[in-house]
Nucleic acid binder design. Structure first.
Length: 266
DNA sequence: ATGACGGTGTGGCACCGA
């Protein structure tokens, strides 16, 4: 089973690219962030025709908005963080019913935070704390769990093109990285780092100053899996191809491949 | 020091993103 996450920075603008990508990457589930559209404008029909007949949508006008689009049935959909009042549409939790495999999937568009010390940064940390609690509840359930999305956090210095120059700036602060580590402490693993990866692997590049061409990026889009799934992770990759499109999203998709079931101990 | 690019909504620009 393949699960992907992609911040598309407006689904209205990016729908053709999403459909094109799905045609070439027949993932089972694609998690989207930054839809920037309301539920009534979500392209259910186009996605169904593409083979993704099961969608959970949590949209919002202008900003935010997340969706899970799937070849397999979804159930038990939760919108936003349980126990946190939030006016922004940033989190979807669903159960995916793939043949012979059920899992709980959490798709998040984490708060940006703008600048350490700002009100938005305080909101980011508050949101992360709420997410931690939400996930603690989810991890305690029986199903294996996958957490994906645009975290807006570099996990460590390997995830940034300029660890010295960007030290303690937004996406790089000790506070944010401790929150990321706190999620791992719940029993989750960074699927990308289970494998040897090319140096300077990033998932986001600024639109400005030819950042993509110069590979001045950040790895802020992540896929975390629960310990129970660890042995089933076959691969985790970033697909830079869509970033080369005309009018691309500033983010690239991240994909994880899971084996159908745990390897039998021969 | 600032803005650089792109999307949205409004309206001829401001705002937000990362």
């Amino acid at each position: 089973m393949k699960i992907a996450t992609w911040n598309v920075n407006s689904l209205s603008i990016r729908l053709p690219q999403v459909l094109d990508w799905l045609a070439n990457n027949r993932v089972d589930v694609l998690c989207l962030q930054e839809l920037k559209l309301t539920d009534d404008k979500f392209p259910l029909q186009a996605l169904e025709q593409a083979g993704y007949g099961h969608c959970a949508v949590f949209g919002q006008k202008t900003y935010n908005g997340v969706a899970v689009i799937s070849r397999h049935p979804l159930s038990h959909v939760l919108r936003n963080i349980q126990g946190l009042t939030d006016e922004q549409a940033r989190l979807l939790t669903v159960t995916v019913h793939a043949p012979g495999a059920e899992l709980r999937l959490v798709n998040g568009y984490f708060v940006n935070g703008q600048e350490p010390g700002s009100e938005k940064f305080a909101y980011k940390m508050h949101w992360l704390q709420g997410l931690h609690q939400h996930l603690a509840t989810e991890v305690a359930q029986t199903l294996p769990l996958v957490l994906v999305g645009d975290f807006n956090i570099t996990a460590d210095d390997r995830d940034t093109h300029d660890p010295q120059g960007l030290k303690e700036t937004i996406h790089h602060t000790t506070e944010e990285r401790e929150a990321f580590a706190g999620l791992l402490a719940l029993g989750l693993v960074d699927a990308f780092r289970l494998f040897e990866q090319p140096e300077k692997s990033y998932s986001w590049w600024d639109y400005r100053e030819m950042a993509f061409r110069r590979n001045k990026g950040l790895r802020i889009d992540h896929i975390l899996v629960s310990q129970s799934l660890r042995e089933q992770v076959i691969a985790c990759t970033i697909d830079r191809q869509p970033r080369k499109n005309e009018r691309p999203s500033d983010h690239a998709p991240v994909i994880v491949e899971l084996a159908d079931r745990a390897p039998s101990s021969a």
